[in-house]
């Protein structure tokens, strides 16, 4: 991945920066220039909470080439408390521990390494919230 492409998304990937529509209140992650719910173009920045729950998940056994060394790994769709949904890996657990509605926390992790550009790419992954 080229550095401008990577750098642009850092606020979202590192800090979960989102935007809330000033007109209808919908929270957008990543931010958009126009709200898809009400067409407003006025937003305020919000930082997403790191707590959410699993809506669905899979275990990837046949990965893309740049994830060859990771497989098998878990991918889930997570809904955060603000209602924002995202796709991410779930780590530090076995697939047997997963369930729909299981609570998770978002953590900061290394996502992939691109040997050609030597950029180590970081972002969010989920871990199960343990009592």
């Amino acid at each position: 991945m080229k550095s401008p492409q990577y750098t642009r998304e850092i606020p979202q990937r590192y800090r979960l920066e989102a935007e809330k529509c000033r007109q209808c209140g919908k929270v957008h992650f990543p931010p958009r220039l126009i709200c898809d719910a009400c067409q407003s173009q006025e937003f305020e920045q919000v930082i997403l909470s790191r707590a959410g729950r699993i809506l669905t998940w899979t275990v990837i056994h046949v990965p893309p080439t740049n994830f060859d060394l990771e497989a098998p790994y878990i991918i889930a769709i997570v809904e955060l408390e603000e209602g924002v949904r995202l796709t991410c890996q779930v780590v530090d657990c076995d697939p047997e521990e997963l369930a729909v509605d299981a609570p998770v926390e978002m953590v900061f992790r290394r996502i992939q390494e691109d040997s050609q550009a030597d950029i180590i790419q970081y972002g969010y992954k989920a871990v199960l919230s343990r009592p």
Partner: peptide, 18 residues
């Protein structure tokens, strides 16, 4: 926001299947 995280097309349809 999907592929960056390591998801594949079979993976996306697997999420729907589950």
């Amino acid at each position: 926001y999907e592929v960056y995280q390591g998801v594949t097309f079979p993976g996306l349809y697997a999420l729907m299947a589950r």
